[in-house]
Design a protein around this nucleic acid. Sequence first.
DNA 1: TTGTATGCGTTATCAT
DNA 2: ATGATAACGCATACAA
Lengths: 329, 329
Amino acid sequence: MSENNPAPTMKDVAREAGVALGTVSKVINGLPVGESYRIRVEEAVAKLNYRVNSYAKGLKTNKTYTVAVMVPNLISPFFAKLADCINRSLARRKHRMLFYATDYDHNQEQEYVILAEQQKVDGIICLSYNPDLKVSENIPLVSIDRYFGGQIPCVSSDNYGGGRIAAEKLVENGCRSLAFMRIGSSVTNEPNKRKDGFINACEAMGVPYTLKIVDDGTPYSAFEDFLREHTHKGKLDFDGIFCVTDSLAYQILRTLRQMGIRVPEDVQIIGFDGTRHFGDQDFFCSTIVQPLEEIAETCVSMILEKPLGKAPSLICLPVQYACGGTTKS
Amino acid sequence: MSENNPAPTMKDVAREAGVALGTVSKVINGLPVGESYRIRVEEAVAKLNYRVNSYAKGLKTNKTYTVAVMVPNLISPFFAKLADCINRSLARRKHRMLFYATDYDHNQEQEYVILAEQQKVDGIICLSYNPDLKVSENIPLVSIDRYFGGQIPCVSSDNYGGGRIAAEKLVENGCRSLAFMRIGSSVTNEPNKRKDGFINACEAMGVPYTLKIVDDGTPYSAFEDFLREHTHKGKLDFDGIFCVTDSLAYQILRTLRQMGIRVPEDVQIIGFDGTRHFGDQDFFCSTIVQPLEEIAETCVSMILEKPLGKAPSLICLPVQYACGGTTKS
DNA sequence: TTGTATGCGTTATCAT
DNA sequence: ATGATAACGCATACAA
């Protein structure tokens, strides 16, 4: 009908229905009210196309049904799927997701936390690279993959176990000499345990291994150089590679193919994450699959059903090996 | 210091600083105020760790600096990158993104629009499959890829032009007989024009073509059957294929390889979208690249710098061909 | 059971 | 320039 008048309020509905303000509020919130009144109010609501103003409501109730989610970006399939899963877990509980991309920037991460506090969100879920993120005590925060210690709970995959599984699977598939390759943040974090688990398993099995570990920012060619250095007469020094992520595994795979080394015949590769082509097709490579749905569900339930005080500080969820064609089985 | 007391308000800051409420408000909003007062207020803010309550602010100003973004999911790299770009465009303008995944569900799409209205967002950007989405007149909405007509502006790639470019490129690369494959929504939408552009170019060039068009939900095997039907003595009837998306192109590519048909030697393939491995590595296939940054920027600027009345109703942004290894150049 | 009045935290309009 | 006060839209304690 009308063109650009302000949205109707409860007062408008009350007037339209010929009842008091409080009655409208009760109808809206499903509180008991006389049948005839309810109907009149509902008709008025429909007629005016009335919508509750969640800002006014939030101001009163101090509940916003909104959770802030911060990850570096939505370009990387891992972060995108994580955000997707968190969003679904939230939606199931009738909560909304306020999203922030941090781009790995410490200042932005801190700024977004402040923004989230202003927004009075019911909680914050973040995958942060800021080692000394300051966060107000009155908004619950759950960290993914980065253990801040003390008050802030952290949820992650069983990275250590995943590293072990990778080494064991390669050896089980006949590999006699392994390599581990990693590029990543130098900030202490859970994914760094992938290496530890890998090494632990190699040593337990008495299998020799080589490491190539570089920090973020290092050009990829460092790995090409590494591979070439370890190639003699067209043959690699190792026959099994564990890459810290599927993304790196994919790049290594391409380099090896260019070098004329066959995968998985000459060398087998296992990545980490469980990334699929286009999100839902086949795996990029053989991989350690992270339980993203469970991680998301755990984070959300910790935020919303906060038993607070006695929350465990670090939760590692089980991972699973999946063959994606870059191993023999 | 304190443990679980309510967050401090302006009133607390005023008391702490020994000034009036209005003065605090002015300091917070950068309005002119006596230097000595400003400093005292700023100190009090720091001391109490005060944060503006955006709910109270939004209630007063009727401005939330929040835009709702609805796409089917964040699993598909296309949607994820779209959401990423929109988020960046919003962040640049100091706006936040409230995200909703619709899962292609008409009811959810409608529900989320209602939710967004309740949240009093400053606008809605959606990629909706609901042909008769109802939306309140007082929240600006911009649609991506789906033209609703009339009041609601639509932003999309130049799908028609992209279809033309694909056909022309294939012919330029030596193809003599083409095929177009599509799986998608039967709802009228902009991406369907890819086919029209393709056909138009084929006819203009006098090049024969075959179409395989199925609706969402059709099993992929329909394409395998199609390919087999068009294979005689190990040779395909056509030597150039245009797929409606990179995702489909990738699947076709795999099928062809299984059939022992070489790409791009025996048949060249062009997809659509410009999807990259892990978001930022190489293209999955030769493709028509959608200008996602521009699409996002356009949507955001239409929402926020709404010149309203005279907005054009359909904006098609230029696409670009990129070789991704499944064509000869 | 229904209506009235107060306050949530902020901005903005007033006097001062 | 600064301080008091009224709204914003809603929930709720209280009165009718």
